[in-house]
Amino acid sequence: MDVSEIIIPGDTPGIEWRLPVFRFKGDDPATPKVYIQAALHADEVPGTALLHFLCEKLRDAESTGSIAGDITIAPQANPIGAAQSHFGELQGRFDLGSRTNFNRDFPLISLRDRNSLIEDLDRYPATDQLKRQLMHVALGADLVLDLHCDDESLQYAYIDEAFWPEASDLAAALAMDAVLLSDGESSAFEEAIGFAWKYEVPGERHAHLPGKLSVTVELRGQRDVYPHMAKADAEGLWRFLAARGIIRDESISPSTFAGPAVPLDNIEMIRSPESGTVLFHCNIGEEVTEGDLLATIITRPGMAHGSIEIRAPQAGLIVTRTSDRLVRRRADLMKIACSQPSGIVRKAGTLED
């Protein structure tokens, strides 16, 4: 295992960020190359735990000559966010200096312009340097996995329709409960990688990208960080890498994804109409039908008619739920994956900021 560091100078004197990158060299140049990162949202660490155990397995595989394709891993991809503590709470999703999401505003470029990402880096602030260097490393691979988690959540993934259904092997290997098929219309990390591949020749768009994959994997909820889960997920990624021929393991047999795969237009984003205390009546993983009571919001405690009921707009699977129990008006409460499009028109891009 080769270990190097991406060094990012801070925007104030005396500050420097160091990001370790692990590389496992494959012995077959014809085999696809893999890049995996975790904790781009620095407070989402199930992926960091997963990669800790996966690296352990990869070191053993390296010692026996079982790695066919190059594998590059960044277990903690955001040292800037990891250092942001506000009144004792880690703030890993947004850069406190620029107020931008660490997983938004990645450059939308053609693959042929990859090297431009790291030219004249000094003219960019630290967060943009981080994004550009991560993207430059990732575009040297064929398969790119960005490991995140949700709030309270099932295991699921955002996968661009350009990679589906080929990517169903990843969903099966990780025993995902659902796949949300995205349109590739945002500046999030995995969609910026897909954009570069789709527009490898500027002005010419590839609708399907065989042999490529760029995906956001949501490893359950933010507090689902346990050794048995991390080890099971590491085994899942091992199965995926073996099925794709990146590592040699004849004991692995492919499995089939059995969960729903629905476009983002079919996701019901359940939001709170008013601020208040949330009483949930349904949990993640439950199938609901139209009209089922999902939650009660206590808006005026102690008052007659001081609560609001929230009901399911259609049938579907509850994929995520907020962990907050005191919410603001228009706060996201749940995502429900449905077989039919939502009645609310969605803007192109991500479901949440």
Rank of each mutant, 00 (worst) to 15 (best):
L279Y: 11
G306I: 09
A188D: 12
P32V: 07
K33V: 04
H52L: 02
L279A: 08
V137R: 13
A172C: 09
N101V: 08
D265R: 15
R248L: 14
S275W: 00
P227F: 03
E152S: 07
D146I: 07
P263W: 11
L134D: 00
G26M: 12
V215F: 09
T320C: 12
R223A: 12
L143W: 14
D2E: 15
I297Q: 07
P32A: 12
A295R: 01
K347F: 04
D183G: 15
D43K: 13
A61G: 03
R220M: 13
G10V: 11
I36Y: 01
R205E: 14
T299G: 00
P20A: 12
S253Q: 15
C338N: 12
D122A: 15
E191D: 14
W164I: 01
P75T: 01
T296A: 02
I267D: 01
W197G: 02
V327E: 02
S275F: 04
G349K: 12
I270Q: 06
V262W: 02
S307C: 08
L147V: 04
D11A: 08
T320Y: 11
A77N: 04
D105V: 01
K347A: 14
K231V: 13
N266C: 15
R223Q: 10
F257N: 06
I159S: 06
A173W: 04
L209Y: 10
R112G: 06
I118T: 15
D28I: 10
I284K: 05
E286L: 04
E235C: 07
G276Q: 02
V3C: 09
S214C: 11
S255N: 11
G14M: 07
I73V: 12
P263L: 07
T289M: 13
T320A: 12
R321V: 03
K198C: 11
G92E: 03
A230C: 08
Y35S: 02
I73P: 00
A207F: 03
S187A: 15
D324G: 01
I344E: 14
R93C: 05
R325W: 00
T72D: 00
F106G: 00
V262A: 11
H136M: 03
P13A: 13
L213I: 06
Y124S: 00
R132P: 02
S323W: 03
P75F: 01
M334T: 06
V288P: 02
L134G: 01
V144T: 10
S187T: 15
S85P: 00
G194I: 02
Q91C: 05
Q37L: 09
A315I: 12
G343P: 00
Y35I: 10
F189H: 10
Q84K: 08
E286K: 06
A295E: 03
I247Q: 04
V288Q: 06
M1P: 08
G349I: 11
A77T: 04
E274G: 00
S275N: 05
P75N: 01
E250H: 13
D142K: 09
R18C: 04
L170E: 01
E352Q: 14
M176D: 05
L139W: 03
G10W: 11
D60I: 12
A171I: 07
K131V: 02
I246G: 03
G221S: 12
A173I: 05
S66T: 13
D142M: 10
D95W: 03
L147K: 05
M1F: 09
I193M: 06
K25V: 15
A348I: 09
L294P: 02
H228F: 11
S323H: 12
Q314G: 14
F189G: 04
